[in-house]
Design a protein around this nucleic acid. Structure first.
Lengths: 252, 252
DNA sequence: CGCTGCCTTGATCTTCTTCAAAACGTGTGG
DNA sequence: CCACACGTTTTGAAGAAGATCAAGGCAGCG
């Protein structure tokens, strides 16, 4: 038989606050890597250009193809970026946590969003117009340098994904995705890495370029092998080392 | 039988100069989008920080894993960026033409090159230390803004590739790759788009996450269908519209 | 002339998708 | 509290896309 599934490790106090108070805004903005090096006065000044918006799970923050007029910072909750292919399926590009930035980063470049941003959980995001963000960049050159770094890091991530999709099996890609999620937002618990967020088989499939069925099969296999454990709002990596080994085996 | 193959459309005067004279350096640097908005005096000042290096086809400009200490601009020729996977195969991330920038763009971020840069043709590149480039960025904030745009555009490209790899057939991916190459460095000739560069089946395979054999089969089919024509140092798109249709069909 | 390297083509095999159906779990209304 | 309905997950069986294995073919070059 398959191993007994643990009861949900999610505790009430783990739940993030959804409300986006004025105090929180300043705190979040100061925590955003973009503005970390600025003084409190400067952040306060920048804060004036932002305004907060709340979203329910599943709500669209902006849709692919819409004019790219805003830049956003996640305050609370999780946001996912999804591309729609011509074939009708979706590709999950990234899942963003508080402090991360998305939207119209390249001010001159694109004039349309190439992807849809959707609230994965109830969340609050801070919004600034592309115009105002441009002004911030010009006024605070150090912000532009950090932004350059940020976008550069994303570029490397995206290219890593390209590499994986080109060469690795679905098993390896899913193992990689789980490890990356855990690294980004995992917590240690009972000797396992706990990823606490709603993560459907469909999400996993869209992250790894597989079908729902294949994703389900692989996840089932991982659970049978004692590598992971999962429930409604969480996935726990019981044996990250074994998952890492799977990444290294197979094709890639 | 298959259609008669045209004689090579490559003409002697098409060949780019390889030598990288001092005059050329200034001209190239001024043509690089990064520095286009700067005055001649400023470019001259920046030029002093660069030095030119020549490479033979196939030579490595920098290897994956090496300390990321330099930033480069292509002066003449073509440079390709390749990732090596754990499985031993290579993934071709990009082919760069004169005016394009590569290497250590994110100054703070990565400390190692995640990919190898290799001369696709004989070429000359302008090199600057990451340290000096950082100084340039701080001295000329407008350069940082352009760089941000540049990296942002690359990020979108990479994500587009992720999307394609996740959803499109090899046929569609190869058609896309050919169209993208033609758009970037194609010339009109005899009613076809001519891509003039050495482009092996292996290159195409590495660009699209396919095997050499599959790439060869697809290219052969395209030629039989009159969509393309190819020779030693060139590929001609005889029917770009049909290729675009293939991109839209199949899965993606 | 006969290398050597790249391209082509065929046959077989693996991986993953697709189609189909059943099991599960969650929320709802009786 | 139970029954039902809905969405999600799981599992099975068949099929397709592409990889792999294996020969030849063609061109440039010593």
């Amino acid at each position: 038989m398959m191993p007994e599934r643990r009861r949900t490790p999610v505790e009430p106090d783990d739940v993030e606050p959804v409300a986006c108070t004025v105090d929180l805004r300043l705190q979040i903005l100061h925590g955003v890597p973009f503005f970390r090096q600025l003084s409190h006065a400067e952040v306060a000044q920048i804060n004036a250009r932002f305004h907060a918006r709340d979203f329910q799970p599943g709500e669209v923050i902006y849709g692919a193809g819409a004019p790219a007029e805003h830049l956003y910072a996640v305050a609370t909750g999780k946001v996912k970026l999804v591309r729609h292919t011509l074939g009708g399926q979706d590709v999950l590009l990234d899942i963003l946590s508080p402090g991360e930035v998305f939207g119209s980063l390249a001010m001159l470049g694109q004039d349309r969003y190439p992807e849809t941003a959707r609230a994965q959980t109830a969340c609050c995001v801070l919004e600034v117009s592309a115009r105002d963000f441009g002004a911030i960049l010009r006024r605070h050159p150090s912000v532009a340098l950090v932004a350059l770094d940020f976008v550069g890091a994303r570029l490397q991530e995206a290219r890593e994904t390209v590499s994986q999709l080109s060469s690795a099996t679905v098993e390896a890609r899913i193992a990689t995705a789980l490890l990356k999620l855990a690294q980004k937002l995992g917590r240690e618990q009972d000797g396992a890495l706990l990823i606490q967020m709603p993560l459907s088989r469909q999400d996993i499939a869209e992250m790894t370029g597989a079908t729902i069925e294949t994703a389900s099969r692989v996840m089932s296999q991982f659970r049978k092998d004692g590598l992971i454990d999962s429930g409604r709002q969480w996935v726990a990596l019981r044996d990250p080392a074994a998952l890492a080994a799977i990444v290294g085996v197979s094709r890639d």
